[in-house]
Simulated assay, not measured.
Amino acid sequence: MRALAADGWQVTAASRGGGSDGGWPPGVRTVRVDRTDTAALAAALGDGCDVLLDCVAYDGEHARQLLSLADRIGSAVVISSAAIYRDEEGRSFDTQEEPDGFPRYPVPIPETQPTVAAGPETYGTRKVELEQTLLAAGDRLPSTLLRAGAIHGPHSPLPRELYFVKRALDGRTVRVLPYGGTTRFHPVHAANIAELVRLAARAPGSRVLNAGDPAVPTAAEISAEIDRAMGRTSETVLVDGPPPEPTVGSHPWATQYPVVLDMTAAERELGYRAVTTYEDSLPGTVAWLVDEVTGADWKERFPLPAKLSDASGDWFDYAAEDAWLAKRG
């Protein structure tokens, strides 16, 4: 919002709630729209717009909805996902829970890396369907698809940093990191996505581009940076290999193999330069998280991380962790 307004665009923010944010620049118009209601979206577009940014398009049906309104849209920028990539053996995020199922991607992953097949089955396959449908109609609606990594920053519905922030708030002074703490999952701050959007809006085209921060910290580096932001000190116990117990050491960055995106295409095609780094942006994210979870039920406040935690057993099973540490000696 700020990046586009600062670049001279007249910005309208559409959402189901129709609300605004105190940090938005003056002049941003708001409108209440449910994207599943095509008539309401058409009404919100009115006579049309030069650029449409779609952060909540997930499948081919959403792509076809946008194409049905192509005569009112100059170009589109649509958020896709790095979850669409597969490795040379066919492994992807969809197979990561299978034995030996985590993908071995090249480091870094270029946009030419194969993707999963398009279809309605999973988040990744639906995103591929979204991409293919829009790209096939590039003559009608030029669309930039941004394959985002792990999105972070204040107001994220899936703040992975919550794992280490809550541990610090709970007074935990030790953390267990599998795979030697070296796991990497490419983050992208909302401000860097905004910069990509700003540049794509200036240069319409039909393309796919990765969206990531300029560097990819390891899990150990992330945990240490969060400690610094909170003024805490923790002991780190490194484990070679996977989490030693189902609820010990399982965290949101515990990917068995690295997921690192190649950003050279965005740099070449758009002149992209990141506006922030993970480390520089982290204090703002941490302060927001501390404010959000202090005195609150974290699972009610953040249902998506709660779902991930439940799927792995329990991110914060301190009794199991203490028992493992005691047995380890």
Rank of each mutant, 00 (worst) to 15 (best):
D170H: 06
R207V: 13
F164T: 13
R232A: 13
E88C: 14
E97F: 09
D262E: 05
L304N: 14
Q96I: 15
V286I: 15
E61G: 15
H62W: 13
P204V: 00
T218H: 06
A194W: 03
R86T: 15
A117M: 02
I226E: 09
S223Q: 10
A83Y: 08
R301Y: 07
D227A: 13
R86Y: 12
L304K: 14
T36C: 13
G149Q: 08
L261M: 14
S143H: 09
F93Y: 13
L135C: 09
C49L: 05
R232M: 12
R35T: 11
E300I: 15
P120K: 09
Y257E: 06
T30W: 03
R86I: 15
L270F: 14
P246F: 01
D314R: 12
A83V: 03
R175M: 13
T233S: 12
P204R: 02
A5S: 15
R202D: 04
G90K: 08
T122V: 09
D21C: 07
G212Y: 03
P283C: 05
D34C: 03
D213A: 11
L53A: 10
Q10I: 12
R35G: 06
D54W: 07
P110T: 10
T182R: 12
A296Q: 15
E161A: 14
T183H: 02
D34H: 04
A190K: 02
A191L: 12
L158S: 14
L238T: 00
R202A: 13
K327T: 15
F316R: 00
D310W: 07
Y85F: 10
D213I: 08
T144H: 08
W288P: 00
V165E: 01
